[in-house]
Amino acid sequence: MPTTIDAQGIYYAQVNEQIRDLVRRGENEITLTNVTGQRYIGGGIQSPDLKITVRGVAGEDLAAFMEGPTIEVMNNAQDGVGNTMNDGKIVIHGLAGDVVGYGMRGGKIFIRDDVGYRVGIHMKGFKDKQPVLVVGGCAGDFFGEYQAGGCLVLLGLTNSRKFSVVGDYCGTGMHGGVMYIRGGFKENYLGREVKHFDLTNADIAKLKPILEEFACIFGITEDIYDFHRYRKIIPVSTRPYGQLYAY
């Protein structure tokens, strides 16, 4: 039985202290109920076995600097989900705000619906440690800005944006990692530092398990394995600004 914390009317610092206290006592499953935007849930926690279920709307900087735990939010989340997170897994059964996965270094984030601006910016990766961020809906401007590693997936399932599943300046300053975007986007929305390509078999092999995990989590029945509708976006140079400077 998971331990339940009723967050109704409790300040975030107390909620988080209670969570840390339970973790120190070896609790592996925690459910938070009546969450109304309390901030920093799971912030900085280092515990690979911990699972936190959030019933309600998770506040800003959910799982910031987190390393290991799994957090499932049964509703929406505010800005800064997975800010600089190092490892673990976040599932949002709804939509999330701006700067999701800023500077993310590892782990996985799955968001069922839309996200706001500057999502997945400055995501990093080194060798085997490659973060994954999957957005089921559409994304705002500056998606994957400065991306340096990892894998961003945008599925466009919500059809909430009319002409393009992603906003303007997508992949601006990108210099590493990969983005897969399904559904149409305006070509002039792409940053100057990236180009888009058809998926290769290697891409499909990499993407398929990620999509399967996403479909399994959210019970997606729609066919999201129509790989001809995806575009791969990668940087054209690891040094987008190498020519900007004099000798």
Partner: peptide
């Protein structure tokens, strides 16, 4: 730094989660 070898290590001009004193507090 977890970035590709030979790439420029770019730190954006602003911290993109800080656009105000309130955000800094966050």
């Amino acid at each position: 730094r977890m970035i590709p070898e030979g790439s420029d290590a770019i730190s954006p001009a602003p911290q993109h989660d800080i656009y105000s004193i309130e955000d800094l507090r966050l």
